[in-house]
Simulated assay, not measured.
Amino acid sequence: MAEHQETGSSEGTPAADAYPRKILEYMEGFLISKTLFSACELGVFDVLQASEPPLSAEEISQAVGASLDGTQRLLAACTGLQLLNTHQENRRVLYSNTEQASVYLTRSSPVSLYESIQYSSRTIYLGWHYLTDAVREGRNQYEKAFGVSSNDLFEALYRSDEEMLKFMQLMNSIWNICGKDVITAFDLSPFNIICDVGGCSGALAKHCTSAYPGCTVTIFDLPKVAHTSREHFVTGADQRISFHEGDFFKDTLPEADLYILARILHDWKDERCIELLSRVYKACKPGGAVLLVEALLHEDGSGPVTVQLFSLNMLVQTEGRERTAAQYAALLAAAGFTGVQHRLTGKIYDAVLGHKVT
């Protein structure tokens, strides 16, 4: 009789040598995230960046004020994740930053993701503890996660001055690494007067004035956001950037040739998006346009997986969702915009442009 091969029973029992590698990787995903978050929070990458020679675990633990045992385990994990390099010297293991860690994980880097990581760790991660509830209920989880009402989305999002600054730092760090790509996805040089609706830290406004020297940009945002932006992000050096304080659902938008809505529409349901876009259309000069900056889903909804995960985050944190280019085009058309086009940047965020003909 031939030897029986383990191919699984008729009831669908997996083969004896089957191994759920992908599922186990997914189960451990949050461990990887928190390892990165904790190493940043402790300042491991900053300490190594400030040191010319590589450092030992003992030296790093003393510098960050952590236990030697815990530091050794954290450094080992960061090495396994290819965030740190190891060097052997006189039987000692020394550590240094990888190139990516130096560029993106140190606070001193001009394109640092440190603040984005802090927001992910201290805000988004806590909210995602209630993802199951968000899916069951179909609404965000601010009340359970942070004990605040979400009747006013931005009152919840900006529930303290500290939280508002953290969010603005998150936005600033994201646009530092991909803002130029979305601003130059289309040639915006014909538009001289630009209004960045919900412009937050002003990072995209800076990219606009850099890429298009002939333009001026007005950042339209809530008074407390505008004040914080002036204090922490937008200095008086660039005279082409100004502020207009207001609520974009309630107050009159300043007249402009081009309106930028970056990571705005994904916060809201379709009805609210059309309401806002209609306000933009009314304020827009004839021949003007609106630029949407969003993470675009494939038209069949099959991906990208990052954007699918972002859409879950919109469920946890906002009233909105991520959408396809066609869905954004439909929202723009409902508000009166025509000739809608989109461009993929190859990075996190993409660009959609709609025009006002008359």
Score class of each variant (00 low, 15 high):
K250S: 03
V217W: 09
L94C: 06
T228H: 05
S56F: 04
T106K: 02
V280Q: 04
D181R: 10
R139N: 02
S121P: 00
E99T: 12
R73S: 14
W268N: 01
I260W: 06
E163N: 09
R263D: 12
D251F: 15
D247F: 10
L315F: 08
G346M: 15
I193M: 08
A2Q: 11
R107A: 08
P20S: 08
L84Y: 05
K282W: 03
W128C: 08
A256G: 11
L291M: 13
D187F: 13
T358A: 14
L68S: 05
E143S: 09
I260D: 04
Q62W: 05
I183W: 07
H227R: 09
K166E: 08
K250H: 03
L68I: 15
E299I: 11
A185M: 10
Y158P: 00
V103M: 05
Q341Y: 03
Q82K: 14
E99F: 14
T252E: 14
P304C: 09
T306C: 13
T345H: 06
Y95H: 13
Y328N: 14
F146G: 00
D133T: 14
E163Y: 01
L165R: 11
L296Q: 06
E299F: 10
N97I: 06
L74A: 10
S201H: 06
A63T: 03
S278Q: 15
L188Y: 04
G236K: 13
A66D: 00
S121A: 13
S108V: 13
G80I: 07
S51H: 08
L31W: 09
I124F: 07
F191W: 06
I241T: 05
V44Q: 01
T13N: 06
G12Y: 05
Y158V: 02
R122N: 11
G12P: 02
L261T: 15
G303A: 13
P254F: 09
I274P: 01
L253G: 03
D300S: 11
A39Y: 03
L258H: 09
K347N: 07
E25C: 09
A262Q: 10
L258D: 07
V135H: 01
R279Q: 12
R263Q: 12
R92N: 10
E115G: 03
T123Y: 09
S242W: 03
Q141D: 00
E28H: 05
L36E: 05
N151P: 00
L292C: 15
C273W: 03
H342I: 08
T7V: 15
Q88G: 04
L309G: 02
I60Y: 00
P20K: 08
I260K: 07
F249T: 01
R279M: 11
L276W: 07
T132K: 06
Q72L: 09
G198H: 08
N172F: 07
A226G: 02
N85C: 14
A326C: 06
H227F: 02
Q72G: 02
D247I: 08
A205W: 04
G303R: 14
L55Q: 14
G12W: 06
H342S: 15
G43W: 05
Y142L: 03
I348F: 13
A211M: 04
A134S: 10
M314L: 11
T338V: 15
G80N: 15
P54Y: 14
H298C: 10
Q62N: 10
S210W: 04
S189N: 11
M168D: 04
E3M: 12
A334M: 04
Y328I: 04
S160P: 02
A329Q: 14
C178P: 00
D267Y: 12
T216P: 00
A351R: 05
T71P: 02
I241P: 02
N151L: 11
A63Q: 07
D181M: 07
L204Q: 04
